[in-house]
Each structure stands twice: as C-alpha cells, then as structure tokens.
C-alpha cells in the first residue's frame, strides 16, 4: 500500500502521458482527412484534385472537329504526324490578366460563408467562340527553324538545313506550305504572291 503511496508522484507523471495521448487521439480523429488511407497511405481526394487541373492543350481531335480541310491536307503530307498544337501552340492560351472588378462588401461576406467557385482559368477559348477569339499565326521563320535547323545531334534522315544558306532570310512559307511542306512545283521563290497560300 505504502509503495503506491510513495510512488504516487510517478503515477501523476504517467497520468500526464495518458492524458496527452488521449488528447492526441481525439485531435487526430478530427484532423486527419477523411479520404486518407482509402487507396494507400495518402489522401485519396488528392487524385481528384490533381485530375481537375484545367487542360490547355486540347488535342488534335478537337481541332480536327472543325478544321477537317487542314486535317485532310496534312494527312497526305510529311507533317501528317505533327499535331496541330505542336506548331500553333496550346488551344487555350492564357489571357493577359485584366483589371477584375473588386468584390463589394456583400460579395466578400458571401464568400466567407460559401467559398466562391474556383476562378475561371483566364484562357482564350477559340474553340468555344471561333469568330472572336483567334490564335496567333506562328511566324514560320522561327517556327520551322526550331525543328529543321541542321545539327549533328539530329537523326541523319531528318530533313535539316542551315536557314541562312537555305532561304537567305526569306520566310519558309514563301516556298513551303507548313501543312504539307513538300516543295510545290508552282511555288518558286519569286512567286511571292503565293506566300499567303500556306496559311489560307
């Protein structure tokens, strides 16, 4: 009996431990995200959140839905396997951030209770509104050189030129049509009138 009496302070210390552990268990119950451990040692909800990231490259199928004429032309040429956005860039281009109207007091109050929907990723949506939103046409002088500038590191069979020697600084689409770049007999360097043909 007196052993317990003389060791009483030790039980007090142990009691602190037990108390801390109980508090830990309670807090843990509330703090750990609900979906944690559903598939493994991680938050399963994260999968959905990562999958919700907005896409910017729409995929060539989307472009071909409307531009079937270009798709047909391209499929017969050397660039058949070059996807639209490889040259034209992502269909959804980020817009320059413009001055958004500041939320008024009421809107800010509502936002406190009901979190507002995630802001629309300010993207150019050519596919939704083809008339008013138009992607910029790439400059062929820069664009073509990216792939076709000669380099020993490139595969031997890949068509490559030294741009300065090859075209004397003329834009590539003077002679080549980017969608089907094989030399067109009619398109000689002097036929500058044809230049716009490539982008028509």
């Amino acid at each position: 009996m007196s052993v317990f009496k003389d060791a009483g302070h030790l039980f007090r210390f142990a009691g602190l431990f037990v108390l801390a552990f109980l508090i830990f268990l309670v807090v843990r119950h509330y703090v750990v995200p609900k979906s944690f451990g559903q598939y493994g040692h991680y938050r399963a909800a994260a999968l959905g959140e990562i999958a919700a990231h907005p896409a910017k490259f729409a995929g060539h199928e989307t472009c071909e839905g409307c531009h079937s004429d270009v798709a047909d032309k391209k499929s017969k040429g050397k660039h058949a396997h070059v996807n639209c956005e490889a040259c034209h860039g992502a269909l959804f281009q980020p817009l320059p951030v413009t001055g958004q109207p500041k939320p008024n007091l009421y809107e800010r109050f509502v936002a406190l209770i009901v979190p507002p929907a995630p802001p629309d990723p300010l993207l150019l949506r050519h596919a939704e509104d083809p008339t008013s939103v138009k992607p910029v046409l790439p400059d062929t002088t820069v664009l073509c050189a990216r792939c076709h500038t000669a380099s020993t590191a490139k595969p031997k069979g890949f068509p490559q030129v030294v741009p300065a020697d090859h075209s004397n600084g003329m834009p590539c689409d003077t002679c080549h049509q980017p969608h089907s770049p094989g030399m067109d007999a009619a398109a000689a360097p002097d036929a500058t009138a044809k230049a716009a043909g490539g982008v028509k």
């Binding site: 999958a51 910017k56 490259f57 995929g59 792939c147």
Partner: peptide
Amino acid sequence: YHRITKGLTTACCEACPT
C-alpha cells in the same frame, strides 16, 4: 494526370512533332 484521366495524351506527347 488531368489529361490522361480524360482520354487525352500528355501535353509533351501532343506537342512532340516526331
């Protein structure tokens, strides 16, 4: 992951010309 779960390919594959 946001693309492949929706049936699209990755951005790098989409943009690779060769």
